[in-house]
Design a binder for these strands. Structure first.
Lengths: 342, 342
DNA sequence: TTGTAGGCGTTATCAC
DNA sequence: GTGATAACGCCTACAA
């Protein structure tokens, strides 16, 4: 692991100046003979360009960062899977940050943009605070935010629409003849919890069903919590005929409990999850789920950023990704369809 | 987004030399008055160190790369989830590469180490070719390989033991009284495919069961391929009573086909998957799976690399992570256990 | 066509 | 203590 050769090493070996070496390496017009000598020397020495030195000079790192709250969350991983190839195709490396849902860490990432180790940033913050907005305004490199930002914030922005998502699910259940549709939600003090809870109420009213708080149970966004919540709900409303779950894990918990209680899914109780993670297709019965377009949002964010990197001056853009109801066996289909295989 | 301030800007503003600025910024002994002036200037200007210039000078980037075959594969994501926090805690950024299982891309990543944009690399190659070994030997930065490398290769190495893993599964099935245990494998020219195939044969012999190639079907490591393979196997050997699947996706495919064929799992056919991904706990019935310790391997690799970055001269080390059989409903339990909820 | 020289932003080694 | 000044490796006027 000796020190690598530099253009100086090559220049000496080839008997030319470092300027000529640089020219050859960059394909600028050079005499054939010189090209030959330089290439030969470079080959023999196993020369590789030093990316750091190039970056210092060119002020571009060909790196882009993606900062997310929690690397264990499948929704972020879905984004990541789409972001990666888009960046790779454009010649950018991906630097990953998991902020563990700590707002201070998110601010740190924003701050570290000033270090110029990346050309841009895609960030999906859990909440957008005043501090976020201040840092964003002062950011030294282009940023794309996945998630909602206040009206008027001058930043490229990609959003989901969980309100419409819940609406799709409720409409679907209503169309199937379900009239006692319960909701199992996560904590109301989280952004998704609050949004989905409100959307449920709205959607019920839209189809003309009464909102009844006895039909709502709050737990947390995990399977075990989902079990508990659904068990409680089932005790309270034994003849419930559909469950709108605030994410797929809760919905899996619902399947567990319903099965144990001898309820058939979907005949007795239809179940809808949210996020359309891989787990939805893996479960049995496979889970109808509202896709909030994690993959699409990731892709859109990557494309927005690349575009911005090419044209730094254009107006900030807003992309809203439409939710999509992915119908599987837990609400409708035959119980023999296994779902997609990713 | 104007050009950021540099130490020169600060030096002018504070009326000192750039050397003093650098000293203050790095906490070297300096007169109080100077410290004060420099800090004030830095604050007012919103100065942030340029990481690229630092790297050029210090020859360290504080970045580490993780290269995996397929960012969509949950086993790699499990590694990633462990690698990230370990590196973060040590002050390193994580650069992600997905090579799409293209050997040339892996070689590229190895080659690009020469560009010095990272201090080290963790790589999990699908196959280790001669070219890989040559590049490894010539690598300009420390590398840790996750996966088997030929005896004597001088590189830090973390391995799973899929042979013992398969053995655990077969022993388990045998202990349950299964005697017609089939195998559904992926391509034999992949490292895992070859290893798992050979291990199956060995394990059968170890418990005294005959190896019968009619009981083996080769597909690929995906659910749909798993379905096809299992369907073929079932046609050929209708009274098969257990299936050893080379990964969880194949096993999910097996569950689909068995269900459609009216076979009960586990009563008629027991099913074992491999990798113990989140999908195993989500499926119904939940899937017994051999954990090859993806998470542990990721963590071990990150720690090996950090250690090597501190002490570049020590002997290469080999860490072998032991497999673990995670028993769930598809081989043994009641059909009411839902599994862990992560 | 080629070489000399300056600069990208830091750090570190000198004298002072 | 502090300030010139020389690297780090590369690119690029500008001059020859």
């Amino acid at each position: 692991m000796a020190d690598g050769p530099t253009i100086t090493t090559i220049a000496e070996r080839a008997g030319v100046s470092i300027a000529s070496v640089s020219r050859v390496l960059n394909g600028l017009p050079t005499r054939q003979e010189t090209v030959r000598k330089v290439m030969a020397a470079a080959d023999e020495l196993g020369y590789v360009r030093n990316a750091v030195a190039r970056s210092l000079k060119s002020r571009r790192t060909h790196q882009v960062a993606f900062a997310m709250a929690d690397i264990g969350n499948p929704a972020y991983l879905a984004m990541l899977r789409e972001i990666q190839p888009v960046l790779k195709a454009a010649g950018y490396r991906l630097v990953l940050h998991s902020t563990d849902a700590v707002a201070a860490d998110e601010i740190d990432v924003l701050h570290s943009l000033g270090e110029r180790y990346v050309d841009g940033l895609i960030m999906s913050p859990l909440r957008v605070t005043e501090a976020h907005l201040r840092m964003l305004a002062a950011a030294r490199a282009p940023v794309v935010i996945i998630g909602s930002v206040p009206e008027g914030t001058r930043v490229d922005n990609v959003r989901a629409d969980s309100r419409t998502g819940v609406r799709l699910a409720i409409d679907h259940l209503y169309a199937l003849g379900r009239r006692r549709i319960g909701m199992v939600n996560g904590p109301l003090d989280t952004v998704p919890g609050a949004a989905r809870g409100a959307a449920y109420r709205e959607a019920l009213e839209a189809v003309g069903l009464p909102y009844d708080e006895r039909m709502v149970e709050i737990g947390d966004f995990y399977r075990e919590e989902g079990r508990r919540a659904v068990a409680a709900l089932l005790r309270r409303v034994p003849d419930i005929d559909a469950l709108m779950c605030a994410n797929d894990l809760i919905a899996l918990g619902a399947l567990d409990v319903l099965r144990a209680a001898g309820k058939r899914v979907p005949q007795d109780v239809a179940v809808v999850g949210m996020d359309d993670t891989d787990l939805a297709a893996a479960s049995w019965p496979s889970l109808t789920s509202v896709s909030l377009g994690s993959a699409e949002r990731g892709k859109a964010a990557a494309e927005l950023l690349l575009d911005r990197l090419r044209n730094g001056d254009r107006e900030p853009r807003l992309v809203t990704v439409l939710p999509r109801l992915v119908v599987r066996a837990s609400t409708a289909g035959e119980a023999s369809e296994g779902g997609r295989s990713s």
